[in-house]
Design a protein around this nucleic acid. Structure first.
Lengths: 203, 203
DNA sequence: TTACCGACCGGCTGGCCGGTCGGTAAGTTG
DNA sequence: CAACTTACCGACCGGCCAGCCGGTCGGTAA
C-alpha cells in the first residue's frame, strides 16, 4: 500500500518536473500534453490519471514551486538586522537559485493572462505571497525605522523586484560578473540611486 | 485609383487596430483570425487578402507602432538640457500615452518568445530602438558629464525602463495620482534611491 | 485462491483554427 | 463598352491537440 502511493508520488513528481522544464521554454499553448507525457516517460493516459486537465497540471506545478520560494524568502523576512541586510539576504537567495527556478517568477507573470477566473487569482496570489509581499514587509520596516524615505511600500517593493529581475539574465552576468557584484549593484541602485553621490560617509 | 488605394488603406488600418486591441487583451495563441476579422468588420478572406499570415499581421502591427514610439521618444533624446530633464521629458511622453499605446511595450516583451528566427529578431530590435536604446543614449551622456555615477549604461537604462513600467498601471495611479506625481516618483527613485536623504541642498 | 483496486496504456475523436480557393461585384483602363 | 484588376466574401479543408475510454497488469486484501 505504501508501495503504491510511493510509486504514484514519484510519477507525479516526474510529470511536474517535465512540465516545468517545457513550460519554461515555450508559451503555454505551444506545450502539448503529449510532449509533457513523453518527457516524463508516461503516456497521455497516465498523465490524465494524475491530473484532471492541462490547466490544472500547470497550476499545480506553479503553486507548489511558488510555495517553495515563499518559504525560502521568508527566512530573510524573519531574520534580524537592518532593512538593507535583510533585502541583501533575500536577493542573494534569489540570485543563487538555478536558472530553472528563478525563471519561474518570470513565467508566472508571462502566463497569468492565459488563464481566467479562479485559477488566475490563485496564481497571482501565490506569486504575490512568494515574493512581492515579503519584500514589502521588509520595506515597510525600513520606512518605519527611518532607513527608507516615506513612500508607498508596495510600490517600492515592486520596484525592487523589478530591479532584481534585470540583474538576472545573461547580459548582467556578463557585465557585472559574479552574484555578489550583481547584488551590490541592485542594492546600491535601490538605496542610493544612480546619481553621483556627493561624497558620503568619509571618515 | 486613388479611390481604391484609399479604401484598401483604411481597411488595413481597421484590421490593424482590431488586432492591436485583441492582442492586448489575450495571449497571441488565444486570438483567432476569425475574431480579428469580425472585430474589423471584414471576413477572414478579406483579412488574408491584405496580410499573408497571422504572424505577419502581428509583426506588421507591432513594427508600425514601435516606429511611432521611437519617433516620439527621439524628441527627448534630441532636446537639450540635463540628463534628468531629458529623462523627465521622455517619461512624461510615456505616461501621457493612452493605455492601449503604453500597453504595447509590455506586449512585445510578453509575446516575443512566441516567435522564432527572423520575426523574433525584428521585434526585439524594433523594441530596443523604440525605448531602451534612447534611454541609454541619455544615460550615457549623464555618465559622461558626471550627473550619473559610472555604471553600465545599458543596465541602467533597462532599470529605468523597468521603474517606469511599474508606475503605469492602476495601483500606481491610485496611490500616486496624476502623471506629474508619478513622474517625480520615478525620477526620485532612479536618481536618489529609496533611502532617506541626509538633508540635501538645504540652503 | 479469489476478488478487487489503482496505476498506467494508447488508440481515438470532436472541435477548433490557420489558411485556401472559387466566386462576385465594384472600380479602373483603353 | 469590353477587358481587366482589385477588394472582399464565406464555405471549406487539413492538421493538431485536449481529453476520453476501454483495456491490461501488477499488486493488495480477505
Amino acid at each position: 500500500m505504501a508501495r503504491q502511493d510511493e510509486r504514484s508520488a514519484t510519477t507525479q513528481a516526474r510529470i511536474l518536473a517535465a512540465a516545468r522544464t517545457l513550460f519554461l521554454g515555450r508559451p503555454y499553448a505551444d506545450v502539448t500534453t503529449d510532449m509533457i507525457a513523453r518527457a516524463a516517460e508516461v503516456t497521455k493516459g497516465g498523465l490524465y490519471h494524475h491530473f484532471p486537465s492541462k490547466e490544472q497540471l500547470y497550476v499545480s506545478m506553479m503553486l507548489g514551486d511558488l510555495e517553495g520560494k515563499r518559504k525560502l524568502f521568508e527566512e530573510a523576512v524573519d531574520m534580524g538586522g537592518t532593512c538593507r541586510e535583510r533585502l541583501a539576504r533575500l536577493t542573494r537567495d534569489f540570485l543563487d537559485l538555478p536558472d530553472e527556478e528563478s525563471g519561474l517568477m518570470r513565467l508566472v507573470r508571462r502566463d497569468v493572462n492565459t488563464f481566467g477566473g479562479e485559477d488566475r487569482d490563485r496564481l497571482v496570489r501565490a506569486y504575490q505571497r512568494a515574493l512581492p509581499e515579503q519584500v514589502e514587509a521588509i520595506v515597510r520596516d525600513g520606512i518605519r525605522n527611518g532607513e527608507l524615505a516615506p513612500a508607498d511600500p508596495r510600490l517600492l517593493s515592486w520596484s525592487f523586484v523589478a530591479l532584481v529581475e534585470i540583474v538576472i539574465g545573461d547580459y548582467a552576468a556578463r557585465v557585472l560578473g559574479d552574484a555578489e557584484t550583481r547584488l551590490d549593484h541592485v542594492l546600491g541602485l535601490f538605496f542610493e540611486g544612480a546619481e553621483t553621490v556627493p561624497a558620503k560617509v568619509m571618515a
